[in-house]
Nucleic acid binder design. Structure first.
Length: 432
RNA sequence: GGAGUGAUGGCCGAGCGGUUUAAGGCGCACGCCUGCUAAGCGUGAGGGUCCAAAAGGCCCGCCUGGGUUCGAAUCCCAGUCACUCCGCCA
């Protein structure tokens, strides 16, 4: 949600931002027109209310004194009707204004590169060696998974339909090992507090983090209870502090949460239709921070570094890109994606997305802090980032650590979580 | 699923039609006072709007939305959420 006062002060900034990302800049002018009218009506209404309050008070005393107040009452009744009429207009204007405001995206940070889509994202750095044009081409994770009998897409489809998966034996354990490794790293070494939160939330929470009202079609909604399945644990975790005023000493807050994520993938028909890359349910370890406005960009850099470290631990080549304007999304002012190298697809695939949402979510969810006990509350900045997507991490491990004989080496950092297993082979797994 | 209770400021908590500008308390900050600390006294801490800004004024604000009234935290209706007891259940 944007601040109407900021728009009033600097309309060009918002017009330009909308223009740059292909929006309609005239929405800003429409809002400003409504705003002028709204304020005019408020001033008129407030004058009448003052009059009513004063006269009503006097009437109370007169009535007590036994005077006849019927004439003055009737007159005030008319004032009351006038006030009601003005309030109706004001409410309508505010509702109109809000419905535009709540669908306008967070303006981009100055450093965000221009561009329409992910093609224009700016590569910041790479890590690890990438082998281009290998011969033969390494196997895709879905083939490997089925050959090793650790992922079963057919039976998943039988039970739940397309875009689902079933993990089995060492595959299920590997998924669990990856998640536990991520959580241990972030809690023990990176200073995050672990949160295990509900994966069903009310619509207010989704409004707070910006999924609603604009992106309802991406969500799964329960039919009988008005609850939604979360698309990411950013939703419950960021909303933990909704409506709160935090103390300065509490900041920054660092949370890490593990949860299932549910996405309807509406409009994604045909894209990444095989395998684990684009599915209706996956698991994710999510990093969430609440910071002061002056430290949020610095904290974003640290968050990206924390996510990179666990990927480095898995010995996966990757790159970090700064996401361009057109690909930035709704809530982020600045966003970095981490993309692992898929040797089978010979391309980089997103495995983490780290965003500084500045005060955009904080304003929607009412998350504030006090700089000093006597000062007025200000909105915090919220950040979130994957640290990392677990299913895609499993893809990265399978594809990057496969051996010519069809086996897959398990990265050292995961071995303690795999009950001593150091590699996945068909024979070895069959024996287990 | 059944029965009940409740939702008031940073927190606790009173008020149940008009001296409430939301009592009182706690916590916090600043100021005064004071060898120091404590105590005491004072001030301050939600949103909107007017004024170029500050100072200040006014309006709103007691879960949300409607209604009754000259006047609603208070009365009426609907909804949301929370809690308690019983039943069922991993």
């Amino acid at each position: 949600m944007l601040d109407i006062k900021l728009i009033r002060q600097n309309p060009d900034l918002f017009r330009n931002d909308l223009q740059n990302r292909g929006g309609d800049p005239s929405q800003i002018d429409r809002i400003l027109e409504q705003d002028v009218k709204r304020r005019e009506l408020i001033t008129r209404g407030d004058d009448l209310k003052q009059q009513r309050n004063q006269v009503s008070k006097e009437l109370g005393q007169k009535k007590k004194a036994g005077e006849d107040i019927s004439e003055a009452s009737a007159q005030m009744r008319k004032v009351g009707e006038e006030i009601d009429a003005l309030d109706v207009q004001i409410n309508q204007l505010e509702a109109d204004q809000k419905s535009i405001l709540e669908c306008l995206p967070n303006p981009a940070h100055d450093s965000v590169p221009p561009g329409k889509d992910d093609q224009a994202n700016l590569q910041i750095r790479t890590w690890g060696a990438v082998e281009t044009r290998p011969d033969p081409l390494p196997k895709a994770h879905f083939d490997l998974g089925e050959e090793l009998d650790i992922i079963d897409f057919k039976r998943a489809a039988k039970v739940s339909g397309s875009r689902f998966w079933v993990m089995k034996g060492a595959g299920a354990r590997l998924e669990r090992a990856i998640a536990t490794y991520f959580l241990d790293q972030h809690t023990l070494h990176h200073g995050y507090t672990e949160i295990l939160a509900p994966s069903l939330v009310q619509k207010e929470a989704l409004y707070g983090t910006g999924q609603l009202p604009r992106f309802e079609e991406d969500l799964f909604k329960c039919q009988d209870s008005s609850l939604y399945l979360i698309p990411t644990s950013e939703v419950p975790i960021t909303n933990l502090h909704a409506g709160e005023i935090l103390e300065m000493e509490q900041l920054p807050i660092h949370y890490v949460g593990y949860s299932p994520c549910y996405r309807s993938e509406a409009g994604a028909a045909g894209r990444d239709s095989r395998g684990l890359i684009r599915v209706h349910q996956f698991h994710k370890v999510e990093l969430v921070k609440f910071t002061t406005p002056e430290t949020s960009f610095e904290e974003l850099e640290k968050m990206v570094a924390d996510a990179e470290k666990v990927l480095q631990g898995l010995e996966i080549p990757y790159r970090v890109v700064k996401v361009c304007l057109g690909d930035l999304g709704f809530t982020a002012a600045l966003k970095y994606d981490i993309e692992f190298w898929s040797p089978a697809q010979q391309r980089y695939i997103e495995i983490s997305s780290c965003s500084n949402c500045t005060d955009f979510q904080a304003r929607r969810a009412g998350i504030r802090f006090r700089r000093a006990p006597k000062s007025g509350p200000e909105f915090v900045h919220t950040l979130n980032g994957s640290g990392l997507a677990v299913g895609r991490s499993l893809v990265a491990v399978l594809e990057n650590h496969q051996q010519p004989d069809g086996s897959v080496n398990i990265p050292k950092v995961l071995q303690p979580y795999m009950g001593g297993l150091t590699s996945l082979t068909r024979a070895q797994l069959a024996a287990k």
